[in-house]
Computed example of a mutant assay.
Amino acid sequence: MHVTEDLDTGSSVLGLYWTLFGVGAVLGSLTAGSLRKLPVWPVTLAIVAGWGLTLVPFGLGAPTATTLVCFALGGFIYGPFTTLSYTLFQDRTPAAWLTTVLAARGAALLTAAPLGTALGGPLVAALGPRLTLGVSGAATLVLAFTAAGIWARARYVTTTPASAPPAADRSG
């Protein structure tokens, strides 16, 4: 919709967007091993935020050349996401529950695409393709920063020693 309505171009530009995204994703996927040396949760949240950030220029009406670069960069940023998210699930889930949790994850992801389409259609009709992409990017940024805040708070609570109970008053 963005290519045909906003840019008034055809399949060659759409193909270029997806080609650049794919090249970026392949190159980004190759970085997953080196990213594994970093703390996985913050890197995963940075990937989500980075993806959202690459969509914002679409909503701002950036030139096509800029959005093509953004989509390629978005692919590069998104590339390691699947590997790192699987790593998180495997690291955090007890072995006895891993199959069940990964099956639930798969079911949620299978549901997400049609749900996104069902929600995206009315959004595109109401806002237009360009603004829908920008709003999606902004919402993704809000999600990433909210999750980062929750993660940071949980880390703070688990690493901060609990206050010692007051000593009993024995003077009396």
Rank of each mutant, 00 (worst) to 15 (best):
L68G: 08
T67Q: 07
R153A: 13
L119D: 01
L119E: 04
L109Y: 07
A167F: 08
S85D: 00
L84F: 02
C70V: 08
L131G: 00
G74D: 02
A144Y: 07
A147L: 15
Y86W: 03
R36T: 03
T100D: 10
S85Y: 06
V101H: 00
G74E: 07
T99L: 09
D91H: 12
V48E: 00
L141A: 08
T44H: 00
L141G: 05
T146G: 11
A96Q: 14
V69A: 15
S163Y: 02
A164T: 14
V43W: 03
D169V: 10
L127K: 01
L109C: 08
A113D: 06
R153D: 06
V40L: 10
T159N: 10
I77Q: 07
L20P: 03
T117N: 12
S29Y: 04
L14Y: 11
P161Q: 05
P39V: 05
P166T: 13
F21E: 04
R155G: 13
L55C: 10
T4C: 00
T99E: 08
S85L: 05
G106P: 01
T132F: 04
A113G: 09
S29D: 11
T93N: 02
A32N: 08
D6L: 03
S11D: 12
T44S: 12
A96H: 14
T99W: 00
A25R: 07
A118L: 15
L14N: 06
D169L: 09
P122M: 03
L30S: 09
G134K: 05
